[in-house]
Design a protein around this nucleic acid. Sequence first.
DNA 1: AAGTGGTCTAGACCACAGT
DNA 2: CTGTGGTCTAGACCACTTC
Lengths: 257, 257
Amino acid sequence: MDMDNIQYTLTFQDRIDKTSIIPAYYQLAKILEYKIRLADFKQGDKLPTEIELAEKYQISRMTVRRAIAELVNKKLVTPQKGRGTFINKPNIDNIVFELEGFLEDLEKRGLQTIFKLIEAKAMRSDGEDRISKKLLLNKGERYLYTRSILYADDEPLMYDVKYLHYYKQKPILEVSSPSLYHFIRDNTDKMPTKSDRVLKVALLTSKEALLLNVPPDTPAFLLEQLFFDENDLPIGLSKSLYRGDRYKLTSTGKLLF
Amino acid sequence: MDMDNIQYTLTFQDRIDKTSIIPAYYQLAKILEYKIRLADFKQGDKLPTEIELAEKYQISRMTVRRAIAELVNKKLVTPQKGRGTFINKPNIDNIVFELEGFLEDLEKRGLQTIFKLIEAKAMRSDGEDRISKKLLLNKGERYLYTRSILYADDEPLMYDVKYLHYYKQKPILEVSSPSLYHFIRDNTDKMPTKSDRVLKVALLTSKEALLLNVPPDTPAFLLEQLFFDENDLPIGLSKSLYRGDRYKLTSTGKLLF
DNA sequence: AAGTGGTCTAGACCACAGT
DNA sequence: CTGTGGTCTAGACCACTTC
């Protein structure tokens, strides 16, 4: 890519203003970002080398690296040791949703949230069922089965079923937080460090609808999680049904391309 | 937080091995990460200052900063100019879903995907309707209305309605890619740079179910997007219905807490 | 005034890729 | 061997917060 021949309508200063309050690394990051955009997203091209950029813009190589780090964070480029820094392919359709603040959000609105355990029992694996296979349980090994509901001011919002490895010889702890992390840590010997998650849509069964106090066949988010310990061994899994009329995932952000 | 008195079962080297192949900044990042974890997630505490860390671990301040940058990326800490670097509150329930590869995924499976425009017309705003308000259209201004369906090997997967600012005096371009970015760029004068997105669950109406070739009342993902230009002015909005029986969002990753 | 994080430099050595 | 990005240093100055 010839970085010196930009001839699009959108113009910008192709130099670093060292007197500006705006940091040099940020200025350079913006310059490079524009150049990448204006070149109409030619993927596979290489950025000029760090030393070239440092010389051209009269800044140190470390500052150039800081600028490139910004682009790496935005996934615009990928540096490769010994080869160069390559421009990535556009990824507009890659949308990131954050399933956060489910509780915070509710609490901000002044609602009291309670996570109520409605059933908890130790089970013995027969070694054949789907749960045993997913959790790698042998016949006769125990596991914990729990069902819980998340309430906000007495209104049920989420229904949750968990299956967990269970070795501790103590009673199941009362659950006040829906944080699976703490639940697992307190009720098993394991420390969860990784999880796979799948988010689907589902129709509530009549039983589930009853628990969530909505009409049958209401749509819901179904979040299936599989938790692993530090050795990538499964610790437990959970299925959570979030009422579709009360939950949504939001996301906002810049479009990279 | 007293960083020198760690007395948990989990142990680790509380020093930098300068002979290791593992970079010093990475070693320090891991040390700090463990200390944050083991201190049982005390939010609000401050990390030792950069200079203290540099002296304690016998590395330069820049290397300390690189380590802290790792933690910032993981949202474990937040530095504040002039005050210190603060430990964030745990956020286990913050799950990131990437709505990516919808198409790539299909194409990998060898399916041919076609994005077919089934209707497109220019409309005039009456200045009163919901669309006009969301797009800030005055009475009489034109906008583009399109309906499309995404097929994979003749099977409909997604149904999509768009409303876009429309100033160009040229025919609506054929759409081969569902990339809203390119669609907007080619059919309006605007360059989309930001979008708000909301993901909900919905029941398909009988009409929608017919278009998607599924039984009525099938659940679906409803993705609502609102696109903005560089001045944060709305450019267009879209509603996309993804068949719940064919789509899911997946996510995998480390648990921070 | 003292302490903190934010930026920047000029140089060094390394590991890796391509020749 | 040369060129690339990756790491690291020792020091500098700045802006902001706190006292």
